[in-house]
C-alpha cells in the first residue's frame, strides 16, 4: 500500500543533508510552509542553498534559519521587502550569497527542472545586469538569454489537502510556487491542513499529482 503520510516531523525531515538546495514555497507568507521551515531549523542541516521568492521577514521562519548561519546562498526574485531585516543584515555583512532571478525565470527554471528541460532561452532580462555573462541568441527577432534549470534536493511545500498517494489541492493564491517546486525536487515534503481518504479528492481539482510528492505531514488543527 502506498502511504506517503508520515507520523511526525522527525520522519518528515529525515535525510536532508548539509549543502542541500532547498526550494521553499510561498509568496510572502501566503502558501509558505512555516511548520516545515521550523522543522528544518530543528533538523539541523546547514550550508544550505535556499530558493524562495522572498527572503523572510522578522526573525522567525526563513529569517531565523538565515540568522542561525545555516544558509550559504539564497536564490530569489524579491529579497527586500517590509521587515526583511535579517536578509539585509547578512547581505550587507557579506555573510549571504545572493542570486536575484526575475520571478518568471525563477518559476520557469524550476518547472524546467521538473520537466527534464536542462536549459531554455527567454527574452526576460536580456541586456540587464541580472543576465550579464549568460549566453545569448536571437529567436523570432528577439534577443534571448540562456537560463538553466534549477533543480532542488528538497522542496518544502504547503498545500490544503492531501491523500495518502500525495495528491494535493491548494487554496486560492496560496498555490503560487508550491506546484512547480514539488515538481523540481528529488525529495518533496508537504504540510497540509487535512488528509482526505484516497479517492475523495476531485481528480479535476488536484493541482499536484502524487507522483511529485514524497512525504506528507498533517498540521495540528489550530483553533478557528
Amino acid at each position: 500500500m502506498i502511504n506517503k503520510i508520515v507520523r511526525d516531523m522527525a520522519e518528515a525531515m529525515q535525510g536532508i543533508p548539509d549543502g542541500a538546495t532547498v526550494l521553499v514555497g510561498g509568496f510572502g507568507s501566503v502558501g509558505q510552509p512555516d511548520t516545515l521551515i521550523d522543522a528544518l531549523i530543528e533538523q539541523g542541516a546547514s550550508d544550505l542553498t535556499v530558493v524562495a521568492n522572498n527572503a523572510g521577514t522578522g526573525r522567525v521562519g526563513l529569517a531565523r534559519l538565515m540568522e542561525l548561519g545555516r544558509v550559504r546562498k539564497i536564490i530569489c526574485s524579491f529579497p527586500r521587502s517590509a521587515g526583511s531585516v535579517v536578509f539585509e543584515e547578512l547581505y550587507k555583512a557579506g555573510r549571504l550569497e545572493l542570486e536575484i532571478v526575475p520571478q518568471g525565470t525563477l518559476a520557469e527554471r524550476m518547472r524546467a527542472a521538473g520537466a527534464g528541460v536542462p536549459a531554455f532561452y527567454t527574452p526576460t532580462g536580456y541586456g540587464t545586469l541580472l543576465t550579464e555573462g549568460k549566453p545569448t541568441a536571437e529567436f523570432c527577432g528577439k534577443m534571448c538569454v540562456l537560463e538553466q534549470a534549477l533543480p532542488g534536493d528538497v522542496a518544502l511545500v504547503q498545500a490544503h489537502m492531501a491523500d495518502r498517494w500525495g495528491n494535493l489541492t491548494y487554496r486560492r493564491s496560496a498555490r503560487n510556487f508550491n506546484p512547480v517546486m514539488a515538481m523540481a525536487a528529488k525529495l518533496t515534503i508537504v504540510e497540509v491542513d487535512e488528509i482526505a481518504p484516497l479517492g475523495t479528492l476531485d481528480p479535476e481539482a488536484v493541482a499536484t499529482p502524487g507522483i511529485f510528492v514524497d512525504r506528507v505531514i498533517q498540521l495540528p488543527r489550530t483553533a478557528a
Binding site: 526574485s77 524579491f78 539585509e88 547581505y91 550587507k92 526575475p102 520571478q103 518568471g104 525565470t105 526576460t124
Partner: peptide
C-alpha cells in the same frame, strides 16, 4: 544594497 526585481523583467 539589497536589490529586488520581482516580476518586472518578465
Amino acid at each position: 544594497t539589497a536589490p529586488a526585481v520581482g516580476g518586472a523583467m518578465d
